[in-house]
Every structure is written in structure tokens, then in C-alpha cells.
Nucleic acid binder design. Structure first.
Lengths: 97, 97
DNA sequence: GGAATTTGGTTTATAAAATAAACTAACTAT
DNA sequence: ATAGTTAGTTTATTTTATAAACCAAATTCC
């Protein structure tokens, strides 16, 4: 049977965020926004979903123009990414991988 | 920069259909429906999108209860899948692949 | 032979997701 | 003090996915 692909990760923007957080210790909102070329609104919503699922942690210091939101991948998130990759691989047998 | 993931392929059901068609010469509607555990309505819509993009060919013989819709992957579709995999891989550096 | 069922779909309506637009709160320079 | 900028959030709109309803032809069962 076809393997289920974690719907939380199977989204262009959320996957991009998770991908970035795989490679760095932490990343702030502005950095993620630039790297993913997303709008602030969309990013805000998707980060909140990832945080709600426990895939990332998200801490905000300050408010207004001084606000800084810092995101980190959690162990849960890393495991979910690994599971997602493993599931994906089953979709591409017979293709150059 | 993050690579764009072909939105037509970045859908659970359409990707599953394409994945199945990678492995077989052809597949009919009922087979795809069973393998993907999708509803007929959803499958009908998504097959139409893949066909409209030229990623699969879709030919229907007969009508009513005797209708048989047969799908095949096109060269365009295969190339799109390859590009999709290549783009995806860039998302997972630092993970067991 | 003619209702009731089944089969293989398509169309239309609804729910969920992504995106954009509008807004808030605080700072900065004029 | 007011105009503009920055870092976000909230709300509204658009797009996408899914489910429900439907249709046409074949089949089953009296």
C-alpha cells in the first residue's frame, strides 16, 4: 500500500522551514522569511502549526519592532522529517535517486 | 535559495498515482483507486489535472458500467518526477537518506 | 421483462489549506 | 509630532482537496 505522507510536512513552506532548521542550530523569523521567500503572514501561520505539533520550538523576545522570534527544530521534528523521507523514498522506486 | 517543488506533484494523491505509473506500463481507474485508497471523485479530479498537464495519458473505452479508463505515464511526466526528486533531495541534507 | 443493485465514472458542493491584505505595536529619523 | 520602517499577528480571500450526489450502462433476481 502507499505510505501516508505526514500532511504537516507535506507543504512547500513548512517543509522548507524544517529543511532550513535541519542545517542550523536556530533561525529567526526574518531569516526564515528571506530564505523561503514567503510573506510574513503565511510564515507566521505555518510556524505556529509546526510549533503546535511540537516539530519546532518558537520563542519570542520583545515586542513591536523589537520583537525577535527564534525557531529551533525539536527531536520530535527531526524524527518526523526522517519518517517523511523514508515514506517518500517508497514513492520513487525505479527513478534515479 | 530553496528549490521550487512542482505543485502539481506536491500532492499526496497525485504523487501516489505518478508513483504507481512509474512502476507499471499502464493502470486503470479502478486499480489506481484501490491502490491509493482514494474516492472515485477525488481520483477523477486529480487524474484530469495530471492529464491536462501532460504528465499522464488517459484514454477511456466504453461508457456506463463498461467504461474503462487507462492511464500511462508520459515522458513529460517522468521528467517532471525526476526533477521533483532532485529538488526534494536538496531539502534533506544532513538527514539519513 | 422490469424494478433493484452494482459498476465506473463525472459534477457539484463543502471543508481545509495556502496566500494576501489589513492591521497592531514599537521603534527611528525628520 | 508625524511619516516611515520593522516584526509580527489577524482576518479575509483564493485555491485545493475531499466528499456527497448524481448519471449511464450493465447485471441480478424474481
Amino acid at each position: 500500500m502507499m505510505q501516508e505522507l505526514d500532511p504537516l510536512l507535506h507543504s512547500q513552506l513548512r517543509l522548507a522551514v524544517m529543511s532550513i532548521l535541519l542545517g542550523v542550530e536556530q533561525a529567526d523569523f526574518v531569516y526564515l522569511k528571506e530564505k523561503t521567500e514567503s510573506t510574513a503572514g503565511n510564515l507566521s501561520v505555518q510556524l505556529e502549526k509546526l510549533a503546535a505539533a511540537g516539530y519546532i520550538s518558537k520563542e519570542t523576545d520583545g515586542s513591536g519592532a523589537k520583537a525577535r522570534t527564534i525557531c529551533r527544530m525539536t527531536d520530535t521534528g527531526r524524527a518526523a522529517m526522517q519518517a517523511y523521507v523514508d515514506a517518500l523514498k517508497t514513492y520513487f522506486t525505479g527513478l534515479n535517486q
